[in-house]
Design a protein around this nucleic acid. Structure first.
Lengths: 233, 233
DNA sequence: CGAAAATTTGACGTGATTCAAACGCAGTGG
DNA sequence: CCACTGCGTTTGAATCACGTCAAATTTTCG
């Protein structure tokens, strides 16, 4: 039996979410949404190649996006947290670029539209959408570049630091949280073998930087974590 | 003394360029362009962090885009060929995300505008711009993912195959062309050490796949090249 | 022509993957 | 209640691709 130390206890009542990059458009989109959609763990929201049917906004839970290559290997490209938008990368091409699956029971808002022309109030919001896209591109780029240039321990430290910031920004404790993804999924996201990830988590625990029991993670020494994340190759 | 076997001899008179993804918007943008801009080899077109002053369309020559990290290392993110658009990734943020330098004397068209609102005929063209951005994001993503997941020889083979296709699509020979970039720049682009690149080119020549004399490259055995490019890890 | 830069080649070290095996944990059925 | 099974995680040992260092060779360009 697990005691959820993270997601169930709001750390700051509210307010911190204003720093989320796409908040404005989120607010705008929410006004158009259908009733909330519940997706159980391991259930698929949409498949890679499906024709674009609109965006989704995460309200609770967590999801992953995987990209199936022609080979058998698949790349984990995104974890979606509450207030994240799913499907932005499908607007241009007209079909979803990856399969999205819930890694824990999640609540979603669906903003249905097929073509961008159906998007309401286009004049005032298309600029934001552009910025959103472009920003996503930049973020993705820097993430990938980090995967290429940074050693595995730095990548993992950055991942925990980023998750910590994400939870804090959403009103939860930055030091203790639950990550529903398996080690395999985390390793896929960080572009390393599961064994490497396991070894690194063991090492971090030995060094007193964090503790990991199952899916519960506690950051014991944030400064040490940050110093590893900051150190470049 | 070099005999330019590639760029100087149109392979197909015209027509193949219609397959270029951003051709329509290129045509539209060209109507607004100022007189052509000439940039000599190693001259800088714009610096990373400069405020967005508009897009550039390559007419001739080749340029590179590098991304300066806070560390000393710099990542080569793009090579721009004729008809490519420079600066798309700056629209969202308002400043250029990388430094663009000519690697050979290049002709450019400048489409000056500061804010997206000044963009003419916005209603009909913003959709294309969105698609363009999104497509660039997808391309970039798959490229980066390749860097992470594929071994060095596959990456190099893909690079030559892609260059071959690029030259063919632009009306030149796909089997013999000149690449103005240095080995260092090519290695940066492919995320490998110069020495590794040099060894691989030597190996490919030993295997009779291609020949390289200076900056002139001939693809002798396209099938062998393709089979290396196709093979996944 | 001569200096500086670019390219090639070899030797070596290492971080990360792969292979293999042991361990823990949840669910199932006898 | 306890073996049995399957899955996720951990740990160890061997291997490999690639980067780094260093030196030789070629090319570039004033």
């Amino acid at each position: 039996m697990e005691t959820s130390t993270g997601l169930d206890k709001p750390y700051i009542e509210q307010g911190a979410t204003s720093s989320h990059p796409s908040l404005l458009i989120v607010q705008e989109l929410k006004n158009l949404s259908r009733p909330i959609l519940i997706l159980r763990r391991k259930k698929t929201l949409l498949y890679q190649g499906d024709t674009f049917q609109g965006l989704y906004i995460v309200q609770s839970g967590m999801l992953k996006q995987t990209l199936q290559c022609k080979n058998d290997n698949e790349q984990l490209t995104h974890f979606f947290l509450p207030e994240d938008i799913i499907g932005l990368d499908a607007i241009g091409e007209g079909f979803y670029s990856g399969t999205v699956i819930a890694i824990e029971t999640s609540g979603l808002l669906h903003i249905p539209f097929r073509r961008i022309e159906e998007f309401p109030d286009l004049q005032t919001s298309h600029m934001q959408l552009l910025r959103c896209l472009s920003r996503a591109m930049s973020l993705e780029h820097s993430r990938m570049w980090q995967m290429i240039s940074q050693p595995a321990d730095v990548r993992l430290a950055c991942f925990f630091a980023a998750m910590s910031r994400n939870f804090f920004a959403r009103g939860y404790s930055p030091y203790s949280f639950r990550l529903a993804m398996s080690r395999q999924e985390m390793a896929d996201y960080l572009c390393m073998a599961v064994e490497t990830l396991s070894r690194l988590i063991s090492r971090f625990q030995r060094q007193g930087i964090l503790t990991a029991r199952g899916h519960e993670y506690c950051i014991v020494d944030p400064d040490a974590l940050a110093s590893i994340a900051a150190r470049s190759k």
